[in-house]
Write a protein that binds this DNA or RNA. Sequence first.
DNA 1: TTATATATTTAAGTTCGCTTAAATTTATAA
DNA 2: TTATAAATTTAAGCGAACTTAAATATATAA
Lengths: 219, 219
Amino acid sequence: MDNVSQEDYLTAIYRNLDEAGEIKPNLLASKLEISNAAVTDMLRKLSRDGFVDYQKYKGIKLTGEGELYAKNMLRRHRIWEVFLHQTLGMPWDKVHDEAEKLEHSSSDEIINLLEEFLEYPEVDPHGYPIPDKNGKIKKSKTVVAITELNENDTAKVIRVNDDVKNLLSYVTKIGISLGKEIIVKDKLEYDGSVLMMIDRKEVNISNKIASNIFVEKIK
Amino acid sequence: MDNVSQEDYLTAIYRNLDEAGEIKPNLLASKLEISNAAVTDMLRKLSRDGFVDYQKYKGIKLTGEGELYAKNMLRRHRIWEVFLHQTLGMPWDKVHDEAEKLEHSSSDEIINLLEEFLEYPEVDPHGYPIPDKNGKIKKSKTVVAITELNENDTAKVIRVNDDVKNLLSYVTKIGISLGKEIIVKDKLEYDGSVLMMIDRKEVNISNKIASNIFVEKIK
DNA sequence: TTATATATTTAAGTTCGCTTAAATTTATAA
DNA sequence: TTATAAATTTAAGCGAACTTAAATATATAA
């Protein structure tokens, strides 16, 4: 393919598929920060090239080829992130944007060599699994968003959504990192916000933020 | 700038300046493998943006800013090459093309971290010096092209032009690598080709190839 | 069910970096 | 010096990926 734009569309589609494996043009447009009209345009091309199943006014699906492509981009992205964080020491809230650029400029050969150099990491610095050469994604632990926890639940942070602007730097500020233990103290009915203990300090986070932090329940 | 095309123009200009510090549109077009008309077009933009001194029908010069920019791209390029070769083990005849893509997708921050990780290499895998953060290029040994050698001269290979298609893989085949010792046996007046000893074997190379291999005379 | 809001597509237009063809300028050689 | 060749620029046009505005289809709520 070798087309930055199309690669970005496929990745964005894959990242945002709903439970039915579909995504609406509208959502895609907002994720890519472009107009709906541009999306319609590109969908025709992606459809013509066999990467998406697309019919006017219907939800967008990926074809097998499209999904493979998207997973390969995700693989590139996450392997770069590991390299930037682990080898170069770049903070986890900066690697996403850098990897976003690198992923389009690296052959599979580089990626495979990098993977070997990094000793086959299983997850990226935000806890997301890295697809293998064949697009296979190892089933990871079952995680739930913090919003799913109940009062007095104790849990360990496994994954934080890196695709939401500024979320990571905010989350870092309030003391959250991978592996950190949290205890839910209270859940506010009113706005869905969650009061938790982190490092013996009380922290309140909004529902929206809580829904992007994934944890493993302890006991 | 953040514009792949303009970055490529500046790098190509810098790489191919003549003794007077100029380059002709025609040569630039052929290096970039595009039409002369496209070059004229882009020169106007680069001139408008203050990267080149350009007047119709005259040779092209870089401004101070343009030169800095070009050297920074060269820095990125060469640091990536060192990483690919030294850390990932990619052969020296493949790193150029890969670095060509990566150089446009990496912030200065990544490059600086990489440089540190690589322990401040002075040359790339083909023997070219790496400009520092400020664009300063360390003066390296005085080298001459093999074409400048005389019969019975012994010399050590210091640098091979990585910007010529397929040159490196050819040169590798005939046993040349950095640091290798060569002895000039004969120079053919007729076509300028050079007969040399490499690893106790006689090898004849054309004038064109000899002019792209740079050596340090021994005694 | 119908009115209205929202999502999607179509139409027309823009910028970028290219192309080919024609016009013009500069270089070269008889 | 002048004819011719080569280099350069101008002109017109193209495809890609976007935009805004208008048209149309779908979803939602009274």
